[in-house]
Design a protein around this nucleic acid. Structure first.
Lengths: 202, 202
DNA sequence: GTAAAATGCCGAACAGTGTTCAGTTTTTTA
DNA sequence: TAAAAAACTGAACACTGTTCGGCATTTTAC
């Protein structure tokens, strides 16, 4: 099988992971501006130059952190009970999205702020994996079941609209409304239900 | 009246404005990372240290640019015909918001990304001035006219929900979907109409 | 009009940043 | 055990925001 890793490979992976953990923690604590190669190096007892054996540059580290954050976001959304009626499921998916942003504001911010290297297509727009794929599969479910009547629009643009709604809630919460405490959850739930009911009740 | 400004004051204001224009242009061109005190200084033929006669630090310059951008956003929204029926007016306000973001992506991004110095209250939540105030006045209009039935929620949370919707559209457009060309406007219009109809149709 | 004070502006410096590169040490390969 | 490769470092380069001492210029006060 030859699937066992060499000690060298094991060490290398461990160091890579240590770098990513340090980077993630630094970001989670003080945002992107608090992240520096020298701080990462200090945390893992390396010289700054040593990091370049594992990543080409700082951007690659941030990109890797973002991939992990994206996975975490998906896990948040996968916790939603897939046996719920489509309408409720859609609402819960949205609330899970917002919850992730609330609990990981700095990660969320960096995940959706890195304007460089944006994909030319929404992640997994044709698969059921990835957070957007999960959303779209649910919307497709609603259409297939005859619950949603979306006229000329198919699952993709409808999913985009749902995404935009919850993305706005998440973003405002951690930026413009950061210092404005309020019971957001009930309003968010009501707003999403209103929209989803609009999808259902043609 | 004594409203005339001294030559000194006139010069000072002109220089201040030149700094802000240079800063705005640099941001509009290459985003926040392309903005530096030295580049601003070079553009207006000053030494970097000279800028500190007009602004305490870089953040103050960015804050001033953001204030101007906010004014521009409001102008976008004020172009919406106030004589339209509330439902259409609300939709058009949202589309104007998205249009501003599309035309000024970097300014929009910096305007809603500066997580520091966020106000403790949404701008002008009780006035009809400011972009949010304009939105809320419209929502209040719909409630007063008996067009919107928002149950337990008053104009403020409803306006927040509208804001979140269009903010998500705007944000996704210039970040995650930056490289994904598609006819967004029809979908955005349809999605907003669906939501607004949900507000209207009890 | 002249002296004094305030303002405007600059060069140089400090501490910080990402990144590169010549070497040195350590580990793997043959 | 010798040669090759990988891992790691210190020093440097070109940037960054900001501060400070000093030089002009302009404004104020008499």
């Amino acid at each position: 099988m030859m699937s066992e890793l060499s000690p060298k490979e094991r060490r290398s992976r461990r160091t890579r992971q240590a770098i990513l953990i340090a980077a993630r923690d630094l970001i989670a604590q003080g945002g992107y501006e608090a992240l520096s190669m020298r701080k990462i190096a200090r945390r893992i007892d390396y010289s700054p130059a040593g990091l370049y054996e594992y990543f080409d540059n700082k951007d690659q580290i941030v990109a890797a952190v973002c991939r992990q954050a994206d996975g975490l976001l998906e896990r948040y959304m996968r916790r939603v009970d897939p046996n719920l009626p489509v309408q409720e499921r859609l609402v819960e998916l949205g609330l899970a999205y917002v919850r992730f942003a609330e609990k990981n504001p700095e990660l969320f911010l960096i995940l959706f702020t890195r304007t460089d290297q944006a994909p030319s297509e929404p992640s997994s727009s044709r698969e059921t994996s990835g957070s957007f794929g999960l959303l779209m599969a649910t919307v497709q479910d609603g259409i297939d079941q005859g619950v949603f009547h979306t006229g000329q629009f198919d699952a993709f643009p409808v999913s985009y609209a749902c995404w935009a709604f919850v993305h706005g809630m998440a973003m405002l919460r951690i930026t413009a409304l950061k210092n404005f405490e309020a019971p957001y959850q009930p309003v968010n739930r009501w707003a999403l239900e209103t929209f989803v009911n609009g999808l259902a009740g043609d």
